[in-house]
């Protein structure tokens, strides 16, 4: 260890880097297990900090058995049937469907932002309104949405759309504005028309940045999705977490939280991979 230890010019070796980056995980898990162990010594019925075996059992139930409100699957059913009828499967599908509907509805938002940035009349028409809408706290609209759209799927998807699209529109708008004017002029001098410029020059150029901006907003999408599900839903991951809270079902809640984190990570990772494959010219800053 040299004099520069812990300072800006320090160069941790591979072993150090690896050990340091996992240390907090190890500490967190260790602390949990210790607390859990201590609480179980005190009270074997403790439900607040389930042990690993309890969580594994809880998760096994979630993966292999159907939800309480559904018909139980027959005990002799095959693994596949039991999995596709399980609580976790059903919740994941329900949440995933809403999530992807919301993502699909972001595409028009991107197109709108692009047009606002390029066509002055479209920009003037929408910009002030979108800026105003962006300042509305989407969650405060929730009661209005429930009244207007009922408490079924539509209102939950609308909550996500209202919460996230203004950000995406404004971000695309700014990215479009950020494309150097030379590029647009150049395209015109090469014989391009207005829509060629919009879709073949500008959209192509901002696409990786737009995708990154959507990636950053995935958490917001999930936040609104969970808020909607926790308040009014009969299935979905957040519904289950909220429901199990009443039973203090920490043995399922904790694995569910980790499962959601894993899913979100996978979606984000997939989008990063997609970005890199589709836009090999893009260097991430």
């Amino acid at each position: 260890m040299s004099a520069g230890f812990l300072l800006i010019h320090a160069r941790p070796g591979r072993v150090w880097s690896f050990a340091l980056s996992w240390l907090l995980f190890a500490a967190g898990i260790g602390a949990y297990l210790w607390v859990s162990h201590a609480r179980h010594l005190d009270n074997p019925e403790d439900r607040v900090t389930p042990t690993l075996t309890q969580m594994a059992k809880g998760m096994y139930g979630a993966v292999m058995r159907s939800a309480e409100e559904d018909e139980p699957t027959a005990d002799d059913a095959g693994f596949r049937t039991r999995l596709t009828h399980s609580m976790l499967w059903k919740d994941t599908c329900a949440s995933g469907r809403r999530f992807f509907y919301a993502l699909a509805l972001l595409i028009p938002a991107v197109i709108l932002g692009l047009h606002m940035g390029l066509f002055p009349y479209v920009g003037q028409f929408f910009l002030r309104f979108v800026l105003f809408f962006d300042k509305i706290i989407a969650l405060s609209l929730l009661p209005i949405l429930f009244i207007a759209f009922g408490i079924d799927e539509l209102s939950k998807v609308m909550l996500i759309v209202i919460g996230v699209t203004p950000t995406i529109i404004l971000d695309t708008f700014n990215l479009t504005r950020g494309v150097p004017g030379e590029q647009v002029v150049k395209a015109f001098t090469l014989g391009a028309g207005d829509f060629d410029v919009a879709y073949r020059v500008v959209l192509r150029q901002i696409a990786p940045r737009v995708l990154n901006s959507i990636r950053l907003n995935l958490k917001a999408v999930m936040l609104f999705l969970f808020a909607g599900e926790m308040i009014a839903s009969t299935d979905g991951l957040a519904y289950r977490i909220a429901l199990l809270r009443r039973h203090m079902g920490m043995d399922v809640i904790i694995p569910y939280v980790l499962w959601v984190a894993l899913l979100l990570f996978l979606v984000d990772f997939g989008m990063r991979l997609l970005n890199r494959t589709l836009h090999p010219w893009f260097e991430e800053a």
Binding site: E182, K186, F188, T189, G191, R204, Q205, W281
Partner: peptide, 19 residues
Amino acid sequence: QPDSTRGYVPQRYALFPDR
């Protein structure tokens, strides 16, 4: 407005970075 009768080579951002 600019059109194809006049070609243009600016100092910077002359090329499309995505092509």
